[in-house]
Design a protein around this nucleic acid. Structure first.
Lengths: 147, 147
DNA sequence: CTCCATTGGTTTTATATTGCAACCACCCTT
DNA sequence: AAGGGTGGTTGCAATATAAAACCAATGGAG
C-alpha cells in the first residue's frame, strides 16, 4: 500500500513490522480492537476517519494477518474484524506506547485514562525488560548483536 | 507536519504520541540513535532515506523534545542529535516492536539479529507487564478506565 | 411485502506528503 | 583557491490521503 523502497529489506526486526503497523491509523485501530471494537462501523465512529481509509487499513491489517474477517457473531450477516494471535502479540507494544504517552503527554486529564488490572482495578506497573537471570535492564544495559 | 484532523484531540494516551513518532521513519531514526548514531550523515547512510525527509523528521523529533541538537562532541563544528530523557523513554516501545518483529517476521535470518544483555551477552527476556502485586498480565487481564 | 434507514463499503476528485535530484553553503584540507 | 565531505534546502513529479458522493445489501417498522 505504500511504496516502501529501502527499509523493507532492512534485516532489523524493528524495521520489518512497520510495513504492517507503521502508519498513523493502524495502531489506533488495533487499540480499539483491544478495547472491544469489532465492526467496521464501530471503528469508524470511534476513530472518525474516512471510510475509504479505514477500508484500506483493515485490508492491509488482514493481509498482514493481524486481523481475520469473520461472519458476525450476533447473527447479522455482516463481518467482524477480530485480532489474530499475531495481532494480540502487539499488546506489549500498545502498552509501551500508552505508558510513554501517559508520562509525557498527559496535561490536565492526568490519570483520567488508565490501564488497570481487571481483577483488582489497580493501575499496572510499567513494562519491565529483564535479563534471563531476572535483572531489570535499561537502554544502556543491552546491545544488538548480529547487525 | 501532517494535517492531523481528529486524533490529536483524542484523549487516549495511545493517540497523542503518534504525532511525534507515528510515521515510518521516526522510529527507525530513534532505533539508530539507541544504537549509537548521532550525526545527520550517520542516520542518512544507515537508513538510506532522502535528506529532506531526514531533515523534516529530525526537526519534528527535536520539536517534540525527543532529540536535542548539540554541538558535536569531537570538536568539528557540526551538530549532533542526541536523545533526551523523553526520547530514551521510548526504549520499551522499541523493544516491544523488536520482539514482535522477531517473533513474526524472522524468516531465515532467525536469531542473527538479537537484543542481548550487555553484561552476560545472553538474549533478554520478553517484556513483562505486571500488576502492582507482581502477577504477569496479558491483554485480557487489563481494562482501560476513564475512557 | 414495501418503504426507509443503517451498514459496509467503492469511486471520484482535490489536496497534502513523499522521494528523487539538483543545488547551495559551510568547513576542512591541501 | 580548489576540491571534497558534511549538512542541509528547494523544485518537481509521483504517490498517498481525506472528504464527499455514490451504491448495494441488509434489517426493521408498518
Amino acid at each position: 500500500m505504500v511504496k516502501r523502497t529501502s527499509h523493507k529489506d532492512d534485516p532489523c526486526p524493528v524495521a520489518r513490522p512497520l510495513d504492517a503497523i507503521g502508519d498513523w491509523w493502524s495502531l489506533l485501530i488495533i487499540r480499539d480492537a483491544f478495547e472491544g471494537s469489532r465492526r467496521f462501523g464501530e471503528f469508524q465512529r470511534s476513530l472518525g476517519l474516512a471510510k475509504n481509509i479505514l477500508s484500506t487499513r483493515l485490508r492491509n491489517l488482514v493481509a498482514h494477518e493481524i486481523f481475520t474477517v469473520e461472519p458476525c457473531a450476533d447473527g447479522s450477516a455482516y463481518n467482524e474484524y477480530v485480532l489474530t494471535d499475531k495481532g494480540r502479540g502487539l499488546f506489549p507494544l500498545l502498552v509501551a506506547l500508552r505508558q510513554w504517552g501517559e508520562e509525557y503527554y498527559s496535561d490536565s486529564y492526568q490519570g483520567t485514562v488508565q490501564l488497570v488490572d481487571r481483577e483488582t482495578g489497580r493501575p499496572v506497573r510499567r513494562l519491565e525488560l529483564r535479563s534471563d537471570d531476572g535483572r531489570l535492564l535499561g537502554p544502556d544495559d543491552t546491545v544488538v548483536v548480529g547487525h
